[in-house]
Nucleic acid binder design. Structure first.
Lengths: 130, 130
DNA sequence: TCATTATTGCGATTAAGTCGCAATAATACA
DNA sequence: TGTATTATTGCGACTTAATCGCAATAATGA
């Protein structure tokens, strides 16, 4: 199953490269410009996750968000980091805060999903939200 | 909007009191014995969350899980703690591990949702899973 | 016992994500 | 360059989680 380069893949990647945030399929589709089928975007995103290009976060709104693996930190890739979901601007930010925990060795850890939800530094202060 | 006591509420609560785990609506419905409508279970669970009786966790499977607020720790209520979702037994365990992080004060935190996914101590070792 | 209104059941609906299948197009190779 | 292979795409249908409106029911207080 060798990967092929397609305009779709490049478009999706370029949308995610244009931001430091994690994006949902929906947000990507709105920003991508060209017309790409919803299912195709999901398939591209899933393939990127399989290949380690993106990582997937599931937020407490139940939706999946995708972010470039290296964009999370300017200097190094933090494997497990916190994410911040802002209810106002509806974005998810990769925070440069590593997740620490220790479990009994009988546990096998496969995924770590940490999301803090609230109002981000850009939307906060006196603005109203629901 | 004063709350009323109903058999449904008591049944849902008693299911959650019978375990230390967080349960999905689906799992609760299967275990509850009596016949209660799906939408009603969701409404009861949401009301309990509003009242601070339960807390809600959204796992990386995109589903909501509900757990008693005090059962998470025998001694004290840990407001923000890690959760472990086992892919084998399909349960979510409240871990007695507090979540620590520090954010710039401009952030307003409303919810913390941390889930570690893998194979729990009871299902691990030599068992096969997908 | 009665009136108020919180709660429930039912069915329809929404939204996120996936799947099967036929059509398309990127790659490798002659 | 032309052709065969097969990864990828588009489309529509489907699945599942969760919510919603509305009429019917039942818990509470007087």
């Amino acid at each position: 199953m060798k990967r092929r380069n397609t305009p779709t893949k490049e478009a999706v990647l370029s949308v995610l490269e244009s931001t430091a945030k994690a994006m949902s399929q929906d947000a990507i589709e709105k920003k991508i410009g060209i017309d790409i089928n919803r299912a195709t975007i999901y398939r591209v995103l899933n393939r990127f996750c399989d290949d380690g290009v993106l990582h997937r976060i599931v937020a407490d709104d139940g939706k999946q968000y995708f972010a470039l693996c290296m964009k999370c930190d300017d200097h190094q890739q933090l494997k497990n980091h916190f994410h911040f979901r802002c209810k106002v601007c509806e974005t998810i930010e990769c925070l440069p805060i590593p997740v620490h925990f220790s479990l009994a060795k009988e546990y096998e850890v496969e995924n770590v999903n940490c999301v803090i939800t609230g109002v981000c530094k850009d939307c906060g202060h006196d603005k109203k939200y629901d």
